[in-house]
Design a binder for these strands. Sequence first.
DNA 1: TTACTTTTGTAACCATTGTTACTGCAAAAC
DNA 2: GTTTTGCAGTAACAATGGTTACAAAAGTAA
Lengths: 210, 210
Amino acid sequence: MNEELKEAYGFLFEKELLNEIDEVGTIKRMKAGETIIEIGDYVTGMPLLINGAIKILREDEDGDELLLYFIERGDTCAMTLSCCLGQSKSEIRAVAETDTTFVMIPVAKMEEWTSRYKTWRNFVFQAYHARLSEMLDTIDAIAFLNMDQRLMRYLRDRAKIKGDDLIQSTHQEIAYDLHTSRVVISRLLKKLEMEGKISLQRNQIKVIDL
Amino acid sequence: MNEELKEAYGFLFEKELLNEIDEVGTIKRMKAGETIIEIGDYVTGMPLLINGAIKILREDEDGDELLLYFIERGDTCAMTLSCCLGQSKSEIRAVAETDTTFVMIPVAKMEEWTSRYKTWRNFVFQAYHARLSEMLDTIDAIAFLNMDQRLMRYLRDRAKIKGDDLIQSTHQEIAYDLHTSRVVISRLLKKLEMEGKISLQRNQIKVIDL
DNA sequence: TTACTTTTGTAACCATTGTTACTGCAAAAC
DNA sequence: GTTTTGCAGTAACAATGGTTACAAAAGTAA
């Protein structure tokens, strides 16, 4: 049995289910920045995240992006899950935020386990629950917050997920995630630096106190 | 067996499950405008919508509202569902959009049925799926559309749900749903009227061609 | 070193949306 | 009928965020 799998999911699933996962699942590893699922792709499996983090993005017709939320260890992508059950194409893009490891479960098994294992069923429900909550948070942020507050939230999230106060990206990349322009982000970052909340260098932002 | 229940859910659930629903569920009727669930309420049951429509709203700390989506016949509120399983308080407000009839199912039964009935399980998954989709649409609207397009979308939705081109509300009510101000809505409605897309009277909007 | 590319800083300006304030009108209450 | 209340129309202005344009700085390659 794969050790990483056991470590990440051992406390959730019984031995029997873990064995089945180990048997039919395939371990995948992705480098930070690689695209895991593209919009419109047929969803062939469901990823159980073992290590790292994945960011989930939405896109409109013009190709404008928006970050929806991050997925971390012990989580799965309920959106993918949802697509699996509906046999439909992906409505979102998934990109590795850090180097990641996950187990890919074939669609067919998911269905079967849902009736056989109570722990699996609970896991799936809890995944849906978590995703709905994240979506609500995202909606709150877009609808109720100004860009400066959204930016602060974003920086906090990124720092937390990386477990490090140093965020390595360009202003342009942040602008894509928040669906705004580079100039706006530069402007607001400068303001945050003036307020002593962050410090700026080329390609990196250090979170001091957000 | 309740006839309305059979009519709305007969094609989804087997006879046995329908009987159980009929037995433990209580039929509720609400007038348009009545609040069904308030934010912070403990969720004691899950509503299966038989007739009418319910609108689901989100609120921020300042009491500012935002319409998330509508629920129609044959649907349930996945948010409520999610709260049930998590034993938590409601994160949203549900208000009857039209006069509505629904069956309230006690939380305990839900869990039980999830393991016993495949049809129920599918129904629950499909409800989650539908809700995630609606949330995505909502996010798209807020993030990618301007207020005039959001307003058109809103009017179309309301007309469709009511099955009638005549929408009865004040500009202020619309402003609340879209989380903007009355003046902005009046301005945009006037523009739509100029363009021949709607006609305006006090307390009502007639959709002509949106 | 120099030349080139990428990233960031900044100013000036525009567009959309939000705010305040006031008016006229319609319906309901008296 | 008159008065009162709530709704809608509109103007003027403010705030936020988006756009264009250009310069300076930092990093990379030659």
